[in-house]
């Protein structure tokens, strides 16, 4: 079954300038998909279209078995959670706990149950020591973790991360990446759509969609995309660090092509030494 199914979607902010230009794709339930593309390629527009924050000019969006329209929009928003790029501008309440609770309040969850849920999800993102802190006292990475907790607490089936790490420092980026991987392990049926222009993040996912000028110029499984590095380079993306390391090692006569991830590689290297 598909969690997201998009058919011939087109969107224009201004007459005849297509921010999204007739795109179609399917995302199966439980998959981890990255959408990559340069600045202005239409990634954020796509995310907003999927959540009904923008209404398409033509085309169809289907979330599970619901077609996105005025009648279904609330039900669809209950299934999708979005984490946006700017950590500050999506922190709605004055403290961490209130912010995690914001979505729950909107769903009219019983006040007595809410406290438990809030603490539970604050723990999941490792923010349970900061419950009554104000956003001005938190780092960008911490604020993004709060945003993720707020989305997870809603028990969404689909999570969209719109460049959730792009405004963070390397430490913050790494925190969020690890959190995504952990999220996926804990709930395999969760569908993750990660929008990014960071190839390292795309490397974590199992399906990749490349967007340019509102069009999909390439999509495919992780293996297919990263087996053709020259093409990736032509499209303007760097080679992921992990692959670069493997290539360099190969040049020196060490073949690690059977390593799946960085942990495997480290283990094998340590055995050699």
């Amino acid at each position: 079954m598909n969690a997201i199914s998009v058919k011939n979607l087109t969107y224009e902010y201004e007459e005849n300038i297509k921010a999204i230009d007739n795109i179609s794709f399917d995302i199966p339930v439980g998959s981890f998909v990255s959408i990559i593309g340069k600045n202005g390629s239409g990634k954020s527009t796509l995310a907003k279209l999927l959540d009904g924050l923008l209404i398409a000019k033509s085309g169809e969006i289907k979330i599970f078995d619901l077609i996105l329209n005025n009648k279904n929009i609330k039900a669809i928003r209950n299934k999708i959670g979005i984490v946006f790029q700017n950590p500050d501008n999506q922190f709605i309440s004055t403290t961490v706990e209130d912010d995690i609770a914001f979505g729950l309040e909107n769903r009219n969850i019983d006040s007595n149950k809410m406290q438990e849920i809030v603490i539970d999800f604050a723990k999941k993102v490792n923010m349970d020591k900061y419950l009554n802190k104000e956003p001005s006292n938190l780092s960008g990475g911490q604020k993004q973790r709060v945003a993720i907790a707020g989305v997870l607490a809603l028990n969404c089936d689909i999570i969209i991360l719109d460049e959730a790490t792009s405004m963070l420092d390397p430490k913050g980026k790494e925190e969020i990446r690890q959190l995504i991987v952990k999220m996926k392990q804990e709930n395999p049926s969760l569908t993750i759509l990660s929008i990014t222009h960071d190839i390292e993040e795309a490397y974590l996912s199992d399906y990749i969609i490349i967007l340019e000028n509102g069009k999909i110029i390439k999509q495919g499984k992780h293996k297919d995309i990263f087996s053709n590095l020259d093409e990736l380079k032509k499209l303007g993306f760097e080679t992921p660090f992990f692959i670069t390391v493997k290539q360099e090692l190969l040049k020196h006569g060490y073949d690690f092509s059977d390593c799946e991830n960085i942990n495997d590689l480290v283990e094998k290297l340590c055995q050699l030494m």
Partner: peptide
Amino acid sequence: EKSQQLSDAMEARGYDPNSKRSKY
């Protein structure tokens, strides 16, 4: 810019001033 992004974030989390909300 902030207010636009904030209203997007609120709407995406299901905020609707006219429907019943509980209180944390």
